[in-house]
Amino acid sequence: AGLVAKIERAEAVADAQVLDGIILASEAVMVARGDLGVEIGDAELVGVQKRIIERARVLNRAVITATQMMETMITQSLPTRAEVFDVANAVLDGTDAVMLSAETAAGSYPVETVEAMSRVILGAEKHPLAHRSKHRMDQVFHKIDETIALSAMYAANHLEGVKAIVCLTESGDTPRLMSRIRSHLPIYAFSRHPRTQSRVALFRGVNPVPFETDRIAEAELNARAVKELMQRNLVFEGDLVLITKGDAGAQGGTDTLRIVRVGDVIQ
């Protein structure tokens, strides 16, 4: 099982090495702004939130922003402008997820709250800032799967005509790495494992797709993956699709990147 570290103590954010250690030891971190704000003070909270999100992305971990995001909707049917800005800014900072608490656990407008937050998230994701990334461009890579994942994202962001990124994955590590780079393009994580499908759903911009790779001949995987997207009306003839994969059944072995055009013979 993955571990989500709830960051809520002043000691956790006072020292950069301590914060990085917590992030690296976790599958994901949560910015628990209620208790953290009490510990460090409201004036420091905004900057610390941005730093936690930034460090989590640099260190290839997911990050959740939580606490009082739409607090007034416990009793009101519409959010305040300040709450709208709060959610949108977290999205623009790069958070993977925003979290509701009492708004849906005990509030009078749980459905309206989720709908309002969804609208704000989708609106923020349209902003150009949400599509720009210089993630690790000045660093040397040491792993092949990491190199393929990041190369795929930069290619997708700069090649005209790309409509989707397909990642055939066993563990979910490659889509996690991909999701650290900002993009307006969807990442589809094709996996035969329900646990992996659940895991990748947390990562920003990643959509899990159940896909029985062990029942498909390896030579047919690319074509079958594109066919699956076509059947879901996610890509159409003429669109470009980036596909990453490794040896069948191997974890951590992503070593191939292909760019295919929908409608062509795909191998």
Score class of each variant (00 low, 15 high):
90 A>P: 00
201 A>G: 09
60 N>F: 14
7 I>G: 02
174 T>S: 04
27 E>G: 12
97 A>I: 07
121 I>N: 03
138 D>C: 00
164 A>I: 06
120 V>R: 04
28 A>S: 12
231 Q>G: 15
48 V>Y: 00
200 V>T: 02
59 L>S: 03
111 V>R: 15
264 D>E: 15
151 S>N: 11
131 H>N: 13
74 I>K: 13
111 V>E: 15
246 G>P: 01
45 L>E: 02
75 T>L: 15
225 A>R: 05
255 D>W: 13
148 I>E: 04
45 L>P: 01
90 A>M: 04
194 P>N: 02
89 N>S: 05
30 M>S: 06
1 A>N: 13
101 S>C: 13
150 L>C: 12
87 V>M: 05
40 I>K: 05
133 S>D: 06
69 M>Y: 10
89 N>Q: 05
70 M>H: 06
6 K>T: 07
200 V>Q: 02
154 Y>V: 11
151 S>A: 10
139 Q>V: 11
188 Y>R: 06
190 F>R: 08
175 P>H: 08
110 P>A: 12
216 I>A: 07
183 S>P: 00
211 F>S: 08
243 I>S: 01
253 G>Y: 00
212 E>S: 14
79 P>L: 02
155 A>T: 15
82 A>E: 09
96 D>I: 04
266 I>W: 07
148 I>V: 11
61 R>Q: 02
217 A>T: 08
220 E>P: 06
182 R>S: 02
18 V>A: 03
126 K>W: 14
157 N>A: 01
90 A>L: 01
7 I>C: 02
248 A>F: 07
33 R>G: 01
26 S>E: 06
135 H>F: 09
3 L>D: 08
27 E>T: 12
137 M>Y: 09
198 S>A: 14
66 A>M: 04
35 D>W: 11
141 F>G: 12
73 M>R: 03
5 A>C: 07
8 E>D: 01
176 R>N: 08
80 T>F: 09
171 S>G: 12
115 E>R: 15
89 N>V: 02
24 L>A: 03
219 A>T: 12
194 P>E: 01
236 F>I: 11
225 A>E: 03
78 L>N: 03
6 K>Y: 09
109 Y>K: 01
72 T>E: 02
114 V>Y: 05
107 G>L: 09
187 I>F: 03
88 A>P: 00
7 I>R: 06
255 D>V: 14
12 A>V: 11
249 G>W: 10
57 R>H: 14
209 V>C: 11
230 M>L: 15
125 E>M: 15
167 C>L: 09
9 R>D: 13
193 H>Y: 15
4 V>T: 09
196 T>W: 01
146 E>G: 08
25 A>S: 10
86 D>V: 03
131 H>G: 12
210 P>Q: 12
176 R>F: 11
92 L>T: 06
51 R>L: 03
38 V>D: 04
264 D>T: 13
151 S>F: 06
233 N>H: 15
251 Q>L: 12
249 G>T: 10
236 F>R: 13
44 E>T: 15
211 F>T: 05
222 N>H: 09
188 Y>D: 01
177 L>W: 14
74 I>Y: 11
251 Q>A: 11
